[in-house]
Design a protein around this nucleic acid. Structure first.
Lengths: 351, 351
DNA sequence: AGGTACCGTGGGAGCGCTCCCACAGGTGAT
DNA sequence: ATCACCTGTGGGAGCGCTCCCACGGTACCT
């Protein structure tokens, strides 16, 4: 098994040099063929490709990374614990979108969790070593230092939701404002009069935008905004339960709830059930994300769909642009670096 | 070396050579300090460490990988789609265990899905390029070619469940036989007479072992094994529903079901409910995995707990041993390369 | 005819590390 | 004194690639 019949060198994998010898060309030419350079004649290309196939040549990524100063890998950084990551369908959809888009390239995706301080330090070390060409940052909170760190290290990055309206990093987001607004408009159209909302974490810009949509929808309809009907949640099921309990105490007569995530809606539903409220007869419920939870809930949950997979694809697209543009140190304008994708209300039995 | 005009030393990251100059020592010495070699005097070590800190030196992984022929990365390969991965709590626990154990090392974890043929080909390419030092293989089916491929490429690997009793790869598994047996013993102790089982995929060795446990428990108690009470599932909720429907048709008088995964138990529960069977009054139900699903089910599900996180840790331990032992081409015995961890029955209201 | 473009091509010079050999200086036995 | 043998250290020789310059050849100008 070891001997490679005469000309076989030691057990190792074939190198560029060996492919070159086999094809009767120079090292540079093989490199050009491998990297798809157009400056190679068809005959030569064919010869090289044959040699590559015969030898089963696979480029050595370490050597390539060293010489070319790139890694052909990007990281999806999740500033959450594994547990949260798995509990939140958002992440899995995002990962699927990125994965699908990435499979059309030669790049490798790394999934990095940075929930704890310890993991954070590890990540910082990792980034300092420039082990990836770029970073996709999802679910970043307002005062997270990560984006700045990436800036200092000059690592291309794309963020999933802007941290504020002044975001400087390229970003992809869904229309949180419009989504929030459409949820409330839907509930009003259904004849609901007292519409509460369970918000996401307030340090997430997108959550803020949903609340603004909620407010504006009410105001635009000539209604007043009752601040007691706005209760902060934290995107978890437990948080949804807590907020719903609070709401029932504050306003026992409410007849609609807009939960700014499906997971929180699930929590709210439990509390409503226990309190003897029927959905949607007594209280209409609308969620956000249109995840699997929404479809499987009893009754099925009306929810605002965000095209998460598409967002993942879009993020990757932006990142690859960033990376490509950084190579020859070109700097273009900011056009198309802030992508906003539309949301869509999916009406089901809960409202 | 300085005089190659134009080559901007300024912008780049510091190199070993620069640290050496700064500390007034040779390159080799810095390398020794960085890699924790004991053959360095304390004074020299201190000087080097100071220089490293001052310059903010971070080793270049690509260069290291090229020179040392290792990558300091391992892959967790999941031969499933992302969707299945997220649906199955088993994987997330496993990932958590591996991640926790890995954070004590300098190694990097890569998560690779290989559900589709396309992803498979990509993985093969990836492995051929030796971009990882080792592979953790979870949930491998009987005739999967992956283990053989790894063998050919001489990449250290550890498998989560043996493919058969003749498994040659190092593996970590829970005591599936004992777990299956204890579930049935528990049901018998509860006075159940007609105990059915919904099995896992038959091409998974662990699932086979659970069935053997089921059989032997019955036989040991002097009962007969009724083959009609053994229905194959596939570890999914839909499969659980299907199997349960089948069981109710075949044996309407059954009074206990052992589902060989919690997810399938959840499916079975739905069917039982719809058929008007009360749990546990009419039919006792036992699951396997003791995942979050079991705790949250209504009624809470009795389940066989496997220490999945520990299994993840153990797998990583074995893999690191494999990698270390391969370096100086030593080959030891096979002791301790097949780890089996105990299971534990967690009794709840469903039985 | 010479000049000026370009091709396509070969191969030198690194990229930043690790590995390993050589060697200085110290120690203890003879 | 000689020898052997440590320990700590410096630096050469790669690892396998990409980048880029130089070169011979063809084509199309003057």
């Amino acid at each position: 098994m070891a001997g490679h019949g005469g000309r076989g060198r030691s057990g190792g994998r074939p190198t560029l040099e060996e492919v070159a010898a086999r094809a009767g060309v120079g090292r540079g030419t093989v490199s050009r063929v491998i990297n798809g350079s157009p400056r190679v004649s068809d005959a030569t290309r064919a010869a090289v490709e044959a040699a590559v196939a015969e030898l089963g040549y696979v480029p050595n990524t370490a050597a390539r990374a060293l010489a070319a100063n790139r890694t052909d890998a990007i990281a999806l950084v999740v500033p959450e614990s594994e547990t949260r990551f798995f509990a939140e369908p958002y992440f899995s959809d995002m990962l699927r979108g990125v994965g699908a888009a990435l499979s059309e390239t030669e790049m490798q995706l790394l999934l990095i969790f940075a929930g704890s301080d310890r993991e954070r330090r590890r990540l910082a070390q990792y980034l300092a070593a420039h082990r990836v060409d770029g970073v996709l940052l999802v679910s970043v909170h307002a005062h997270d230092p990560l984006p700045d760190l990436l800036g200092q290290l000059e690592i291309p990055a794309v963020i999933s939701g802007p941290r504020s309206e002044h975001e400087t990093l390229p970003s992809v987001d869904s229309d949180n404002y419009g989504g929030g607004r459409s949820a409330v408009e839907h509930l009003m159209a259904r004849g609901r009069s007292t519409i509460a909302t369970i918000t996401g974490r307030l340090d997430v810009y997108g959550a803020q935008r949903r609340i603004e949509g909620y407010r504006d929808a009410l105001l635009a309809a000539g209604r007043e905004v009752d601040e007691r009907l706005i209760v902060p949640g934290d995107f978890t099921e437990a948080g949804g339960r807590r907020a719903m309990t609070e709401l029932l105490e504050r306003c026992p007569h409410l007849d609609a709830v807009f939960a700014e995530s499906d997971v929180m809606a699930a929590g709210a539903r439990q509390v409503l059930r226990e309190a003897g409220r029927r959905i949607p007869d007594d209280v209409a419920l609308v969620g956000y994300d249109d995840s699997a939870i929404a479809r499987h809930m009893d009754p099925p949950l009306t929810s605002v769909r965000q095209p998460i997979e598409e967002m993942g694809r879009a993020m990757l697209g932006l990142l690859l642009d960033e990376i490509a543009d950084r190579r020859p140190a070109v700097s273009r304008g900011l056009e198309r670096r802030q992508v906003v994708l539309p949301t869509e209300l999916v009406a089901r039995a809960s409202s």
